[in-house]
Nucleic acid binder design. Sequence first.
DNA 1: TGGTTTTAGTTGAAGCTTCAAGTAAGTGAA
DNA 2: TTCACTTACTTGAAGCTTCAACTAAAACCA
Lengths: 159, 159
Amino acid sequence: MTEPRWLNADERRAWLALLSINTLLPAALDTQLQAAGKLSLFDYNVLAMLSEADGRFLPMSELAARTSASLSRLSHVVTKLQRRGWVEREAHPGDARVTVAHLTDAGMDTIVSLAPGHVDAVRALMLDAMTDDDVADLARIGEKIVARLDDDHWILRER
Amino acid sequence: MTEPRWLNADERRAWLALLSINTLLPAALDTQLQAAGKLSLFDYNVLAMLSEADGRFLPMSELAARTSASLSRLSHVVTKLQRRGWVEREAHPGDARVTVAHLTDAGMDTIVSLAPGHVDAVRALMLDAMTDDDVADLARIGEKIVARLDDDHWILRER
DNA sequence: TGGTTTTAGTTGAAGCTTCAAGTAAGTGAA
DNA sequence: TTCACTTACTTGAAGCTTCAACTAAAACCA
């Protein structure tokens, strides 16, 4: 039997830590956002990505890429955000297949009011635990992993 | 106006990378495990934690801690794993409030057969993208973040 | 041109997670 | 001892995510 190469001590530590962060961090941020505005971290990110886009709109596919989500998940969530008056769906002028998601003024007001508390939470829950060098290391290593998972992920396009 | 301290370039890179890893990595591992044995990453971890425990059993609370899950989530999942014959619930001799989750032989066989493919996937999806130094850095930084999120998390007890 | 394939997105159902409420047993204080 | 509090866990419902199937338009190509 060809034994698989098992994880060594550091590999196991890195993997278990990432796995734990993975459940704890979104849960903590969800709790904060749920209390502040009855929305999830994913909802917040959809609004945030739209707020940073030119004209505050993006095609569904591009928005899905920027939130690392499936089109199906995004479609359901946009429907929900639309019912809350934060997002609208519009036709794309050049390509009739495309749906454009557009952040409304109410949606913009929502993120603007939520952003400070959210950023504070991100600091309190992770960044404050780290030195500047740690942050730089995590950025570098994190981007390597993202590149491995999806070699043309949008966060790699920015640099 | 008291502007919240915004994220600087590295902080933003680190945060966005972690957020992306957070959705992409579990999704990729879920896909692999779903194909190999019709179970989720969380299911796998429950079985894995039990398989590593003395006697292959743990109280629900302890198992919840080791999988970073809520007791409610775990309870639902153990019910499902129980229906598949991989786990059993037993009474705790000393404390009648406690339910002990016990990995069955069938459950053990399942992880043993699944583990090599899963470890390969973890390597292919993240570890192979990193140098040994990267792995050590990620372990160190990851544990700092875990400590911030939950200062007596079980992965910190091991060291 | 017409037919096939690909791209973009939506939908409903099934399964998973969270939330709130509830049960039962152990702990602690007077 | 008794009563209040806490701990350990379960449950059902509501909401979220995934999956598979579907529609429609654009691109390809022969």
